[in-house]
Amino acid sequence: ADDEVAKLLVDAYRKNDEDKLEEVKKRYNISDEQVKRLIRKVL
C-alpha cells in the first residue's frame, strides 16, 4: 500500500498539484514528514 500511496504523491508532486497532495494526505492520514519521505523513496 505504501508504494501505491508513494506513486500518488509523486504523481501529484510532479504535476505540482497541491490539491491532490492534500487529498492524498487526508485520505491516507499521513503527515507532511511522511509525504516527504515517501516522495524521496520514489524519486
Rank of each mutant, 00 (worst) to 15 (best):
Q34R: 05
L43D: 05
E18C: 14
K15H: 12
R40T: 12
E23P: 01
I39C: 04
R40W: 15
V10E: 06
A1S: 12
D19I: 13
D32T: 06
L21S: 01
V42M: 14
Y13T: 02
V10I: 14
L21M: 11
K7S: 08
K15I: 09
N16E: 07
N29R: 05
K41D: 12
K41Y: 11
A6K: 07
D11I: 06
D11M: 06
R27P: 00
D19G: 12
K7Y: 11
R14F: 15
V35P: 00
A6R: 07
E33C: 08
D11S: 06
E23L: 07
L38V: 06
V42Y: 15
D19M: 12
I39T: 02
K26G: 04
D19K: 14
V10M: 13
D11K: 04
V42R: 05
A1Y: 14
K36L: 13
V24Y: 13
R40K: 13
R37G: 08
A6G: 07
K15G: 08
A1P: 14
N16L: 06
K26P: 00
D32C: 07
A1D: 12
V35Q: 02
D17C: 04
K15A: 14
V35L: 13
L38E: 02
V5N: 01
R37Y: 12
A12P: 01
V24L: 15
D2M: 14
L9R: 00
D2W: 15
K25P: 00
A12S: 03
A1C: 11
L9A: 02
E4I: 12
Y28T: 00
D3Y: 12
L38R: 01
N16T: 03
E18M: 15
I30Y: 05
K25S: 03
D11N: 06
Q34I: 10
K26T: 09
R27H: 09
R14T: 10
N16Y: 06
D11H: 06
V5R: 02
Q34L: 08
D2C: 12
R37C: 10
K20G: 10
E23M: 09
V42W: 15
I39H: 00
D17I: 03
L8C: 06
E4L: 12
E22F: 07
L38W: 05
A12Y: 08
V42H: 14
V24F: 09
D11V: 04
D2K: 08
E18K: 15
L9D: 00
N29H: 08
V5P: 04
L8K: 05
V35H: 02
L43M: 10
V5A: 06
D3G: 09
D11Y: 04
K41L: 11
I39S: 00
V5W: 12
V42K: 08
D11E: 12
K25I: 08
L8P: 01
S31Y: 01
E4N: 09
S31R: 03
K41V: 08
D32A: 07
A6F: 11
K41E: 12
V42G: 08
K15R: 14
R37P: 02
Y28W: 07
Q34K: 07
R40I: 13
L38K: 02
A12D: 01
I39M: 05
L9Q: 00
D11W: 06
K41F: 10
Y28E: 01
R37L: 13
R40F: 15
R37I: 14
E33I: 06
V42S: 08
E22W: 08
V42N: 08
D11T: 04
A6E: 10
L43E: 07
K20F: 11
R37F: 11
K36D: 12
R14M: 15
E18R: 15
E33H: 05
R14N: 10
D32I: 05
E22Y: 07
D11P: 00
R27T: 09
A1Q: 11
D19H: 13
E18A: 15
V5D: 01
D11C: 09
L8I: 07
D11G: 03
R37N: 13
K26D: 04
D32E: 08
K36M: 13
V35D: 01
E23T: 05
D32Q: 05
Y13H: 04
K41T: 09
E33P: 03
V42Q: 09
D3C: 06
A12Q: 01
L8V: 05
L21K: 02
K25G: 02
N29T: 03
L9H: 00
K25V: 04
V24K: 00
I30Q: 01
E4P: 08
K7H: 10
L43R: 04
Y13C: 08
E22L: 11
N29L: 04
Y13E: 01
N29S: 07
K26M: 09
Q34H: 10
